[in-house]
């Protein structure tokens, strides 16, 4: 099937997207410069398929585009009122499950959750807020963990395990009780071998893993998503390369 790879394409919202054997729908779309909203997907890492923001309709069936491989001639719909409405509901649930107080967050303006909410025109959180009690971990001399903002994307877990070879982070619990934990008997980041040089220190799409003594270094107006919406901004992982 893949002997003549260049000839294989699928349709994304009516546009022809070429793909290779190894690519999933979102990887092929991203390579072609097309944006499919996503949070737990990062082009540098193996897809995880947990946040479901990247859900598309592929030949009429809804599926996570980060894990679904395309087929030649497949008709994929992403930017439709119905799918964006479902993405909006997922985003609103993420906002009410945590404590996402943007005005006090150093990641504001660079946050993929916030920028994706702008993209989906999220005017309110719609649901009742949980206001969970999630104490921060400020034990580490260089880094702060603010669990209030965690969306359980597992990127830090994957980076620490697959790239750093350290297993500093893990997701514990099930369902609504799922939470990010630190691999130390005390549960504190200071009691792990976590370092600022780790890949895990730089992959958080929201404001959980924060470098201390940086603060609001970049003024409002010059942050990643101030000038252009996330759909017009290369993924941070691609921008660094």
């Amino acid at each position: 099937m893949f002997q003549n790879k260049d000839t294989y394409t699928f349709l994304l919202d009516g546009k022809t997207i070429p793909f290779t054997e190894e690519q999933t729908i979102i990887q092929a779309a991203m390579a072609a410069g097309e944006y499919i909203p996503h949070l737990c997907f990062n082009p540098e890492f193996k897809p995880h398929g947990s946040c479901k923001i990247c859900t598309v309709s592929a030949n009429g069936r809804q599926t996570a585009s980060c894990t679904q491989q395309p087929q030649a001639g497949m008709v994929v719909e992403s930017n439709t009122p119905q799918i964006n409405g479902e993405r909006l509901a997922l985003l609103q649930m993420l906002f009410v499950e945590g404590n996402h107080f943007c005005p006090s967050c150093e990641k504001s303006g660079d946050c993929q959750l916030q920028a994706t909410a702008y993209e989906m025109n999220m005017m309110s959180s719609h649901f009742d807020h949980f206001f969970p009690d999630r104490p921060v971990d400020a034990s580490h001399p260089e880094y702060l963990l603010d669990f209030n903002r965690c969306i359980l994307c597992s990127l830090c877990v994957r980076a620490s395990s697959d790239v750093d070879g350290k297993d500093v982070f893990s997701l514990a619990g099930r369902g609504i009780k799922t939470r990010l934990i630190v691999n130390a008997e005390s549960g504190r980041l200071a009691d792990t071998n976590f370092s600022g040089d780790d890949k895990a220190a730089h992959v958080c799409p929201v404001g959980v893993i924060i470098k201390k003594r940086v603060g609001f270094a970049v003024p409002i107006g010059q942050r990643s998503f101030d000038e252009h919406p996330i759909s017009f901004t290369p993924h941070p992982a691609l921008k660094d390369n």
């Binding site: 906002f95 107080f101 005005p103 309110s124 959180s125 807020h129 206001f131 999630r134």
Partner: peptide, 18 residues
Amino acid sequence: VAVGACAINGGLPAQRNH
């Protein structure tokens, strides 16, 4: 019309909620 963060999600005053 709800105007601003506090009306929409509780905002700064809601930081006492825990």
